[in-house]
Design a protein around this nucleic acid. Sequence first.
DNA 1: TGCATCATGTAATCAGTTACATGATTTT
DNA 2: AAAATCATGTAACTGATTACATGATGCA
Lengths: 184, 184
Amino acid sequence: MALEHAILVSLLEQPGSGYELARRFERSIGYFWTATHQQIYRVLSRMEADGRLDVREVPQRARPDKKEYSVTEAGRAALAGWLHEPIQSDSVRHELAVKIRGAAFDDPAALIREVERHHRTHADRLAHYLAGEVRDFTGPQAPGPPDAGQELQHVVLRGGIAYERMQLAWLEDVLATLHRLTAP
Amino acid sequence: MALEHAILVSLLEQPGSGYELARRFERSIGYFWTATHQQIYRVLSRMEADGRLDVREVPQRARPDKKEYSVTEAGRAALAGWLHEPIQSDSVRHELAVKIRGAAFDDPAALIREVERHHRTHADRLAHYLAGEVRDFTGPQAPGPPDAGQELQHVVLRGGIAYERMQLAWLEDVLATLHRLTAP
DNA sequence: TGCATCATGTAATCAGTTACATGATTTT
DNA sequence: AAAATCATGTAACTGATTACATGATGCA
């Protein structure tokens, strides 16, 4: 299970509450791993019980208290152990592709709207990634040796950008194909 | 749940047994949806109980009997219904990206082998897809209007090819980054 | 007054994986 | 003699989603 490891990475980058983690999973970490708050809370409790995380109750004024989690030495060791194990390539779950092949048994034209909708979603996501790249990874780099954390975050973001660009090009291919089949 | 729909599509393309489906999920359908035989058998039973599939016991000589499944009218209607519902873009689960960001808290060099391994896996998969494309989608097309099923299968395969090419390019980017961080 | 944000959780259910189990035939 | 292929399944478990629940503050 990689949610646990994604949480370790995120909390090493910056300690925080379950709520904050859930928001990060909607933003940067969500570029390559998704999770809902329910699941995050459950995993956080377990990880704390397992000694991989420390909790600190943080009272706040004008807001409910929060539990700030940080990674213990045991947590860091667990992450290191996982990093040294080989993982298998992620299995693909591409629901839209199921639909496209399914359209052969229905009306291909009915899918055009849906594919256009996905195209917009991916275009938005790409714009969002590109804005993040400009914000976080341009400008003069600090003198001295390169910051590994920064470089690695950037290469992962470039992966997200490449993925969205590929998706957009493919969705355009799909649209052209659907149009060809509809009005030849 | 799209496994059910992936099974409907696959059985509409060609009726078959659970075993045969499992093999297709390792090949063509596996390009965009994965499933193990255990899960397939379970879902097949449920779908048959729900009246979406018909079963026919096929005795075979020199082999165990098999159950050949085919899609009922109700099954076809269920697929059509799903095709007309909007779906949300697939959520990403990119374990390798978690590892790459995690490498900032460990030794980035230790990841090089792992990334190279993934590169080989994707190169193999790409070669496999390209061979399939030559086998199934080249040569003179039949006269008359284009075959929708064929065109749609092809565009999905092109998606798989585009994905693998993008992955390969990105993994090369990752490797270059790791080398830069390791021996600057 | 109503909605959004911050903050945490439980309960029920569904989906997916891993391990185990059986048994014949064909190939090496 | 051993391994691979064909063929089907059960059981236990883990992971993930959906729905429900609570309650304060701040903004329009």
